[in-house]
């Protein structure tokens, strides 16, 4: 099955894809918030479903998660995961509403749509960079937001891949905010989970076999 046909060269190609996509998204986020946002070199790994939850802080870790499906030449799932405090900060800065708190569920409609719009902009810039690089048609669906346990959120994106495997190839990019006191700390993750049937399209588009 697909886990056996992926070589380290393939993983490097996927890493480059994550690099290009996340760099664009980080730039978009920096511009929106007027802050310096950095990203780490993406990790591309084939992991078990349980390990996938651990990448995002463990199954019970409560996060703000934006999910969208990718349609087109490549299909898959994409997540933008933020710690709840970080989502609060970002959205407060965007909508100028200091009472907003995703933790208590007391989020105005404006707050929710701002968060969805943030997800829209970031995933849009990630995916359009990916599309330009590969010349593949990639259409993201409208993003949906959920503030809940990572396990509950991320497992939804594993449904497609779970039909064919117990492992998933994750293109994981951590985004960080520059912090003068403690260096930097991880503020969020982009997870790109191409459907198993989509890897061939990606590799063919990039001339890798």
């Amino acid at each position: 099955m697909y886990e056996k046909n992926i070589t380290s060269m393939h993983l490097d190609v996927l890493k480059e894809i994550g690099n290009i996509g996340a760099a664009h998204a980080a730039t978009a986020l920096s511009t929106l918030l007027n802050k310096k946002i950095d990203m780490k070199v993406p990790k591309v790994e084939m992991v078990s479903f349980d390990d996938m939850m651990d990448l995002a802080g463990g199954p019970e870790n409560v996060v703000a998660g934006i999910y969208l499906r990718i349609e087109g030449d490549v299909t898959g799932s994409m997540f933008f995961i933020l710690p709840v405090e970080q989502a609060n900060q970002f959205i407060k800065a965007l909508v100028q509403d200091s009472s907003l708190d995703f933790q208590t569920g007391e989020v105005s409609e404006l707050g929710v749509s701002a968060m969805q719009e943030l997800g829209n902009i970031l995933s849009g810039s990630y995916l359009s960079a990916l599309s330009d690089f590969t010349s593949l048609k990639i259409y993201p669906t409208v993003p949906a937001l959920s503030v809940d346990m990572v396990g509950a959120i991320v497992s939804f994106g594993l449904v497609e891949v779970s039909h064919v495997s117990d492992y998933v190839i994750v293109i994981d990019t951590a985004i960080t905010e520059e912090n003068t006191l403690n260096g930097e700390s991880v503020k969020g993750h982009f997870f790109l989970l191409p459907d198993p049937d989509s890897f061939e399209a990606i590799f063919t588009a990039l001339g890798v076999h």
């Binding site: 479903f49 199954p59 346990m149 449904v159 117990d166």
Partner: peptide, 23 residues
Amino acid sequence: VGIADMNTVKAPDTIRTSGLGSC
């Protein structure tokens, strides 16, 4: 118990699974 996993238990132990969404 992890995702797509199973196990058994006898009292006084308890059994737990975390972060069920659509599962």
